[in-house]
Design a protein around this nucleic acid. Structure first.
Lengths: 247, 247
DNA sequence: AAGTGGTCTAGACCACAAG
DNA sequence: TTGTGGTCTAGACCACTTA
């Protein structure tokens, strides 16, 4: 039996092959597309879909008329913003460990939330699950995460999920598949609760990611604000530039 | 004569149609793919490539088995990190104006640079064009940008480009087509030169984007550090989640 | 001229949601 | 069952780089 081939599997295969050093030559160049198609027994569409994902992830880049190249691995000091999974998955990917030191959970009406999304209007009586988590990376205070989950969408959050990966908890349930997350990145002075946790002076800088998580149905699931330790937190993004054809 | 159709043109056509309100219904739903294929006279590949770009830009989302929907426009308080162009283009897109108030340019050896990329090694004698720009958004101090350009790649930078769009200056020259940009996002206390410009106390928080710009050949063109005004700067990213097929 | 990646066509089957 | 988007195949031609 041959394993079922699809894009996600192919992406993983190529990553493994690259990491094992089996695929690229001394100039970090991969075999040409026809060769890879033959090797993995897929069509060009499937291959290029996989390469596109690897491109987005910052693993490779392609040069028209020349070839496909493996990028130098970016530093593991930073966490990729566009990883595919939760923050703890991304920590794993770069060989680090994210743990939840403390978590609190309570239920409040939307009118009592400290912040709400600017773009989404919902009933002020909507009940929210108010979750705050204090999380460490390799044992060092890393981020305070303050989230509100719509109780109408996710009835309850078990304690076990609070201390593990909330992302996985949602993904495991068929009714709460995450589709996309809007992220607003800014800098603010660190609030007191977070500065206590991080043992930083009040008013220290803080990297803040405010996000809104939507299901694959477009339904808002949650919104949150994450305060990162400015001394250690770095987020990584690769931006691709598509040159215009109309010049 | 019919206009030549391609993905970039199609993307623009769809955006225009959406903004004119001609394409979506009351539920913000677009016509199905077969209908759009017929309407724009393209195949599914071309159509879906365009929809994929719109998805990445945060304009639309697709729901399996249901349809394609237009997203509520995100606030124009923020600048999209993954825009396609320079910062001034992105300002234009959200209806704001980015101007350069002051710019300095000098040539130094790499050994005298205040910072260099962690992942790239180059000769310490490499000559760099050291550019600092103070830029305002709608008249308010917005960002201090400190960049180093490799003189071996871009011989010189005209004063006119310094006060306009450096991005366009590079894109206009065939030998310096930008391919991708690595961006590291963090928070740091504002340095003095920037705090003077922004009229903020020294030590205020600051949103910092450290980036490395590469040509489409993979050659490093420049690296820079941008200090944003924490009171006004917000960066926007949409993260797509691809659910795994291996569950 | 040869080889590379970029775009595009035409068609098929699968997975999911809703009636 | 129908209609939607998601994946995949097979093949073609174009644009770019290098020799």
């Amino acid at each position: 039996m041959t394993a079922k081939m699809n894009i996600n599997v192919l992406v993983q295969k190529i990553i493994s092959a690259i990491q094992a050093g089996k695929l690229m030559d001394e100039q970090r160049k991969l075999p040409s597309e026809p060769v890879l198609m033959d090797y993995y027994q897929v069509t060009r569409y499937t291959l290029r879909s996989a390469l596109q994902q690897l491109n987005t992830m910052g693993y490779i880049y392609q040069v028209h008329g020349v070839g496909t190249f493996v990028r130098q691995q970016q530093t593991n000091e930073s966490m990729a913003l566009e990883h595919n999974g939760g923050l703890s998955d991304e920590a794993d990917r770069v060989g680090r460990s994210l743990t939840t030191d403390k978590a609190t959970e309570k239920i409040i009406p939307a009118s009592e939330a400290e912040f709400i999304p600017e773009t989404v209007n919902f009933d002020k009586d909507e009940m929210l699950i108010d979750v705050t988590r204090f999380r460490s990376l390799d044992g060092d205070p890393y981020v305070m995460e303050h989230s509100y989950y719509l109780q109408s969408v996710i009835e309850e959050i078990p304690q076990s999920a609070l201390f593990g990966s909330l992302f996985h908890y949602f993904e495991e349930q068929k009714s709460t598949q995450i589709g996309f997350i809007d992220q607003l990145i800014m800098s603010e002075p660190l609030p007191k609760t977070a500065s206590d946790f991080m043992k930083l002076p009040i008013g220290s800088p803080s990297l803040v990611v405010q996000d809104e998580t939507y299901l694959n149905t477009g339904q808002l699931l949650a919104f949150s604000k994450q305060y990162y330790n400015f001394k250690t937190a770095k987020l990584f993004v690769v931006k691709k530039v598509h040159s215009k054809s109309k010049r």
